[in-house]
Amino acid sequence: MITISGLNAGYGGSEILTDVHAEFPTGKISVIIGPNGCGKSTTIRSILRLVPEAKGEISLDGVSLDTLTQKELARKIAYLPQSRQVGDIEVQRMVMHGRFPYLGYPRKYRKEDYEKVAQALEWMELTDLAHRNMQNLSGGQRQKVYLALALAQDTEVILMDEPTTYLDIRNQLELLERAKRLAESGKTIIMILHDFEETLHYADHVVLMSGGKVMTSGTAEEVLRSPKMTEAFQVTPRFYRAEDGLHCYIVP
């Protein structure tokens, strides 16, 4: 479990997060929702020590992340950023970099590293694209490569910052299904989503943020039905129950 307590963070002297407390259970999909600029990405980036002005306590299974070296942290937590520059690099080579936290000096790959990369490519059904250049792939294929990179990193936790942005609906659902299977295999997934219906369907645990603070947390239904939702988003989600379960929609 990742536990955040008393986290204050910001950039260039301006504070974005104020006294954030949150818990993300092991082997579950936790989704952070909230309006733009409320500090969702800053929270995720703080877990990885990517925000220099972050103060507070963040721990993984009771061990403070501050006590870990950069490489130790990378062996425990993988990260899919919201956007990144598309490198002039082959898919297989890109996924090999997921093994970087395990390399000594000089940087020689071991048999185990090749095996982990092969498994990650196979799991993401990328074996046929292994020798394609990243710049020649579609957005959906690239996102699969980034997830394969995170899998090759072989971590307990995967953080995903808006992983479905820029993806068409089929690719969004495919990515979320894979995230669900990863959680079922024991990995802790923390992701930022904007879609309430997807949140309701895939999240085991939801954290609602607004104005740099955690407003509430709980199961998806509890949070989405909470009056805090209207306070945070200025809209009220509506619900209906169908044969396949509860659904959520917004009326403008």
Binding site: Q70, P81, R84, G98
Partner: peptide, 8 residues
Amino acid sequence: DTAQSLGL
């Protein structure tokens, strides 16, 4: 960000 998250 990616480089740091990979332990560099």
